[in-house]
Design a protein around this nucleic acid. Structure first.
Lengths: 173, 173
DNA sequence: TAAGAACTTGACGTTCACGTAAGCTCCGCG
DNA sequence: CGCGGAGCTTACGTGAACGTCAAGTTCTTA
């Protein structure tokens, strides 16, 4: 159950909801590892579950954090550390110092990502509060308008209320 | 103190942290209202606090929701309704039916924005949970590593081993 | 009123993130 | 074994979102 790597680029694209071109492009700019540095020129790229996961992560971070692919390259270096760890484990190359270093690296990157996520959550929270507040005000003004106007008058029919030109209490700005 | 409109495009740009070109571009594509449809050809654009606010809102939504300027145009239609309301109030053109319609419109747009914000918050929350979980695992593995080989074997080079705080500043690449 | 900074329109250039087309190659199948 | 569909490389094209340059104009201030 080591790693299967029996998916081709089109399969992967369909799995994660993108196009082969995009996957090749990501590889080209170094966002994804060369899917077959071993692969003899001209042969098909082959992927396993691990690279599908990584691509998913890339797309998720891109969408949610709104960073450029270049910035993303820095960010997802955590995946590199994870991959290195895994391949190290498979080769039972258990140099504890090296392993610790990889873990420290991964931890650092995870913390950077979390930092970004938290910043964004904060801003989104503020935005939500502002929008909710504005909604509250609009609702209040609507209530006031409906109350003050005479009885019944639901539809967009003409008529409407009397030229009652007062009650101009408006939430400034 | 109705509206001052004594800011020029460069001032506004500095205030909100962008460039004049961007502001003109936003106007060009209809994201911002023609800052002076009245303005005789060739004269300087003039802005007031209201348009500065709107621009800020535009940039905030763009950054936080990651939508295209085209989608943004739909989204911020709420601002148009608000502007309409205000200008209506200034001209004490108080047709209650029209006012109600504007309020309904604004409410709808606010709700769409909130919907988007909530969706995004959900996804960000999930991402945060995933990242935190991974961090937890990395930390656990690091603890295990440190506990297990504490005195049994010295590393290959230098003092590798003890849970010493920071010995691994990496400058790879 | 003269100078110079900031602005105007118009047009072309640029970067990012892919799309698309061409010509050739590889791989599963009948 | 042949063939059709997916993949490969190379290269040029594209839309979004501005940047930049030029030539002229408008505002402000000394």
């Amino acid at each position: 159950m080591t790693e299967t790597r029996d998916l081709r680029i089109g399969d992967v694209a369909r799995l994660v909801g993108t196009t082969p071109r995009t996957i090749r492009y990501y590889e080209e700019i170094g966002l994804l590892p060369d899917a077959g540095a071993d692969r003899l020129a001209g042969a098909h790229r082959l992927y396993g579950e691990a690279e599908v996961e990584r691509l998913r992560e890339v797309m998720r971070l891109k969408a949610l954090l709104g960073v450029s692919l270049d910035e993303l390259k820095e960010l997802i270096a955590a995946e590199d550390a994870r991959a290195a760890l895994r391949s190290q484990l498979r080769r039972d190359d258990v140099d504890p110092a090296r392993r610790r270093q990889l873990l420290v690296e991964a931890l650092g990157h995870l913390e950077r990502q979390l930092e970004l996520v938290h910043r964004r959550q904060g801003e989104l929270g503020k935005l939500e509060a502002d929008l909710a507040e504005r909604r509250r005000r609009v609702r209040r003004r609507m209530r006031e308008l409906d109350d003050e106007g005479v009885v019944s008058e639901p539809g967009p029919a003409g008529g409407a209320g009397p030229p009652d030109a007062e009650a101009a209490e408006v939430g400034r700005r």
